[in-house]
C-alpha cells in the first residue's frame, strides 16, 4: 500500500508539474498574442463583421492587406492565411469563420507547391500554428483530436514548446515586433529587402530548378472539400496565385507545367484562377528591390500594390470585362521581358 501510495504521489506530481511548466511556456504566447498569428480571441470578438475572407499560406499572409482592401472597396476583409497552412487547416478555419460570419466571397491563395507538397516533414509546424490560432484551450484540443493523428501530437507539442521558448526570449529582450496587431486584420507586415539575383549568378540561375508538377490526390481532395463547402454556403470563390519575385521565377524552369495542373484542378471544380505573376506590368509594379521581403514574401509596399491590383482585376471580372489581355499567356513569354534578360547573354540561356 505504501509503495502504491508513494508511486501515485510521485506520478501525479510529475504529470502536474509537466503540465504546469508546459502551460507556462505555451499559453502566454497564445493568450497574450505574443505571436502575430495568435488572433483566435480577436476573431471571436469581431465575428460577423467581415464580408470577405482571404485564405492561403505565408505568401498570402504577406500579400493581402485587408485595410487597403477596405479602403478600395468598403468591404471588411480578414486574412486567415498562415505559414505552412494545410488543407485541413483551411477547411477547418473557413468553416468555423463562415459559420459565425457568413461572407460573400472567399479568395483562396495557392502557391506552386500547394498541390504537390508532402506534409510529412512540415505537418508539425503547420499543426502547431493552427493550434495557436484557435480561440481557447478546448478549441485547441478539439482541433488536435479532429485533425492531427495521435502519433504526431508529440511533434506538435515539441513545436509549441520551441515557439513558446523563442517567444519568451523575445519578450524578455523587450522585442514586441512579432506581437499580434489587431489593426492588421491577419495580414503579416514585412519590411522590404532587396532580393535581386547577383549579376554573376544570373546566367547560372536561369531555369536551374524544376518543380514537382503532379498534384497529390490528398492535396486535391482537401482543396475540393474547401470549394464544395463554400459552394454549399453560397460563397463565391476566387483562386489566386500571388506575385513571387522575379528572382524566384527566373530560377524555376517549369512554371507553365505547374500552372497548367493548377488550372486543370480549378477548372474541374468550376472556380476561377488568376495568376498575378503573369500580369503584364509586373516588372514595373513588383520589382525585386522594392516590393519583396524575400523571394516569395511580399513586403508592406508589395502588399499595397498587390491588393490594389487584386481589387482592380476582380472589379473588372465582376463587371464581365475580359482581363486576359492584361496578362501574359505563359511564363516563357513573361521571362523574355524580365530585366534579368538584359544582364544575361541570351546565347548562354537554354
Amino acid at each position: 500500500m505504501q509503495t502504491f501510495k508513494k508511486t501515485t504521489i510521485a506520478v501525479i506530481s510529475f504529470v502536474c508539474l509537466l503540465a504546469l511548466l508546459s502551460a507556462a511556456i505555451i499559453e502566454p504566447m497564445i493568450q497574450f498574442g505574443w505571436v502575430y498569428y495568435c488572433d483566435g480571441e480577436y476573431r471571436e470578438k469581431t465575428a460577423g463583421e467581415y464580408e470577405v475572407l482571404f485564405m492561403g499560406d505565408s505568401d498570402g499572409m504577406a500579400a493581402f492587406n485587408p485595410a487597403v482592401y477596405y479602403d478600395l472597396t468598403g468591404k471588411k476583409a480578414y486574412n486567415l492565411s498562415v505559414e505552412k497552412n494545410t488543407g485541413q487547416y483551411e477547411y477547418y478555419m473557413l468553416k468555423k469563420e463562415i459559420e459565425r460570419n457568413p461572407v460573400k466571397q472567399v479568395i483562396l491563395q495557392i502557391g506552386d507547391e500547394t498541390f504537390t507538397r508532402d506534409y510529412a516533414a512540415e505537418h508539425a509546424d503547420a499543426d502547431a500554428v493552427a493550434v495557436m490560432r484557435m480561440s481557447n484551450f478546448f478549441e485547441r484540443w478539439k482541433y488536435l483530436v479532429q485533425n492531427v493523428s495521435f502519433d504526431k501530437w508529440l511533434d506538435v507539442y515539441s513545436r509549441l514548446l520551441m515557439r513558446g521558448i523563442n517567444t519568451w526570449q523575445s519578450v524578455i529582450k523587450g522585442d514586441k515586433s512579432a506581437f499580434f496587431d489587431a489593426s492588421l486584420l491577419g495580414w503579416h507586415r514585412l519590411e522590404t529587402a532587396d532580393c535581386s539575383i547577383a549579376q554573376e549568378r544570373i546566367v547560372g540561375d536561369y531555369n536551374s530548378v524544376e518543380l514537382e508538377t503532379e498534384p497529390l490526390p490528398e492535396r486535391v481532395q482537401e482543396f475540393e472539400k474547401v470549394i464544395d463547402y463554400c459552394k454549399q454556403q453560397n460563397v463565391a470563390v476566387s483562386v489566386v496565385f500571388v506575385p513571387l519575385s522575379d528572382a524566384y521565377l527566373w530560377k524555376r524552369s517549369n512554371m507553365d507545367a505547374v500552372i497548367d495542373k493548377i488550372k486543370a484542378v480549378c477548372d474541374d471544380n468550376g472556380v476561377s484562377f488568376t495568376d498575378y505573376n503573369l500580369y503584364k506590368d509586373r516588372y514595373k509594379l513588383f520589382t525585386d528591390k522594392t516590393t519583396f521581403k524575400d523571394t516569395v514574401h511580399m513586403s508592406e509596399n508589395g502588399a499595397t500594390v498587390f491588393t490594389n491590383l487584386l481589387v482592380k482585376i476582380m472589379q473588372k471580372q465582376e463587371k464581365g470585362e475580359q482581363v486576359d489581355k492584361l496578362f501574359y499567356s505563359n511564363y516563357e513569354q513573361m521571362k523574355k521581358d524580365s530585366p534579368y534578360m538584359a544582364y544575361s547573354n541570351k546565347d548562354n540561356l537554354q
Partner: peptide
C-alpha cells in the same frame, strides 16, 4: 520534468 521538456522541445525535432 525539465529533462522531459528538453527532450520534447529539442529532441523530437532533431529526431525527425
Amino acid at each position: 520534468v525539465v529533462t522531459v521538456l528538453i527532450i520534447v522541445s529539442s529532441g523530437v525535432q532533431a529526431s525527425w
